[in-house]
Design a protein around this nucleic acid. Structure first.
Lengths: 317, 317
DNA sequence: GCTGAAGATGAGTAATTGCCCATGGGCAAA
DNA sequence: TTTGCCCATGGGCAATTACTCATCTTCAGC
């Protein structure tokens, strides 16, 4: 009769089926019986309701916003892995949240049965994450440091995280017995020829997953604070367009590594391939925004763990 | 570590799993892999998110409100079947909507393969519904009228719907060859003793599903308008506490059938058992509110097809 | 340190859902 | 009126999800 010809009738049915399924929690079989149609038709109506966006789902939890932000970042920068942690409205810093999220992600990789090579960079955020790791027995994995562990004054670089990692994780560890920054390109190349270093370099290049911090530049950046670069050098870098650094590798605002006298002296392993492995950056905070944005833009990382406020700013850019 | 002991961590995970499942549309298997847990745990987290009301689903369609109202009515009056149709904001009356919904419901019953007995009452709303029925071949079913088809003046009662039904539905039909109202209780009893009538009465009592209109009382009610009752009789009835009628059976505001001189003369079949069958009332409109509410309260019907505005008023009572 | 309860976990299994395909009815064009 | 196309329909099957049970872990209390 008349109602058969109305094009909206199908939509009404779809809405009804969708309501019964999602709101009332009936099975599609029950819906089919109640509406006098076959189960398959009921399924089609439910699908239709979803496809036509009649059904709106939302998550009543602070984490919902984080997941949305993460999804947006993933889509924009073609990331493999994104984690956005809530910005604690009370505390000013959310390093703790990122640290926990980072630890959880590291743990997920280490839990795997099949052997992997896990590479770590450096930085305070990354160290905080590693400090959150529970003790684990992972004899099947290998953990390699991308950066040297000798500070500018010859002492062990504090923020080289592989030793912290070794405290918690029972696994084979491969530090880099090098300074972070050599005095010259030639020295760097010579050191890299050493057999022990070469094998570590090779191992780093094969990493299945890499966790790195992202450092901002400027006089307050870690390279200056930890004494690797003098203030004047830093100012020159910034004038030259540098925007941030990962494992000491300095890049511009487009995420391109600079071809300059500093990068020629960096002793770190090259950042592993983003084509064939996961390179996950941990960073947060307004001061690091430019550095993070540049790393994302240049594809230096294909994974990111950050906080809500930082994610929002990254998306506004 | 610290995060293990936080009771909110599980909720966060549940929220995350729920988001990935409902918003991002991942399978539980993918979620399990992404979160580094087993399928079962992922399923539990999704369930938890639903159970804890973290997931809110809403339906973006006018019919959503109707379905909510229907569910509320069903719960309050222990109804088996409720249908609330949208109140057309443009047109004043929504009889058309109810008619279509009623026709759809009748059709659902008639589509069944196993033989059923379908009983029909009387009324304008019900007739409008029956007029919407498409032609159908239903040799397996039997359709019986609960009310007589002889009007007060001896002519065929117009709003006896079984003849309209016979036009569309190819099935065995059983009208009641009686007046609606007899001149006395004795006459009624005598007529009911006739073999043909007795078999129809018996058939009506066995009905699997019954569709009835609900009539309001007062000088504008169908009993008066159609000339079954004189105005004075009606006034007496209302004074005596009568609130409405179904198939001529008059009931008070609690849905109890009155024990009076009118009901003693009603020739209709008794309303079939609401314990063992579906008795679905079709009615709408402010004037009928008291009658519908009374029928629901007294359990004279266990199914209802009405419109949005009426449903809202019924729930406010 | 031991014990018991409560809750979490994973395997197995039943139920539910999603999808493909053959079929048939309805509608438009010829 | 006939022909051909389109699309809705339901059967069948694979994928996914829900549930149950036995076992394990953890933590509080003794």
């Amino acid at each position: 009769m008349a109602r058969r010809s109305e094009p909206t009738a199908r939509m009404d049915d779809a809405a009804r089926a969708g309501w019964l399924y999602y709101v009332a929690g009936r099975t599609q079989d029950e819906i089919a019986t109640a509406m006098g149609i076959s189960r398959q038709s009921a399924q089609r109506l439910v699908s239709l309701a979803v496809a036509e966006r009649l059904i709106k789902v939302r998550l009543d939890h602070p984490i919902a916003a984080c997941l949305e932000l993460g999804e947006a970042l993933r889509a924009r920068y073609a990331l493999r892995q994104v984690e956005v942690v809530p910005s604690d409205p009370a505390a000013g810093s959310t390093t703790v949240g990122i640290a926990e999220a980072g630890a959880a992600e590291i743990e997920r990789w280490l839990k795997r049965q099949e052997p992997i090579i896990l590479a770590v960079g450096t930085g305070r955020t990354l160290k905080a994450a590693v400090d959150q790791l529970p003790p684990m027995e992972c004899p099947q994995h290998r953990i390699v440091s991308l950066t040297g562990n000798i500070g500018p004054d010859g002492s062990a670089a504090y923020y080289n995280v592989i030793f912290s990692m070794a405290d918690a994780i029972k696994s084979r560890h491969f530090p880099m017995p090098l300074p972070v920054l050599c005095s010259s390109a030639e020295e760097r190349d010579t050191l890299h020829e050493q057999p022990l270093v070469r094998s570590t370099l090779s191992l780093g290049a094969q990493a299945d997953v890499t966790f790195v911090g992202i450092g901002e530049l400027g006089p307050e950046g870690p390279l200056c604070v930890d004494g690797f670069l003098a203030r004047a050098e830093m100012e020159d870098l910034v004038k030259g367009g540098a925007a941030g650094e990962i494992c000491g590798w300095i890049f511009d605002r487009n995420g391109k590594l600079l071809r300059d006298s500093i990068n020629d002296r960096v002793a770190s392993v090259a950042i592993p391939s983003r084509e064939t492995s996961c390179v996950i950056g941990l960073a947060q905070g307004r001061r690091k925004l430019a550095a993070i944005a540049a790393a994302l833009k240049g594809g230096l990382i294909n994974g990111l763990i950050t906080d809500e406020a930082t994610a929002e700013h990254l998306l506004q850019a």
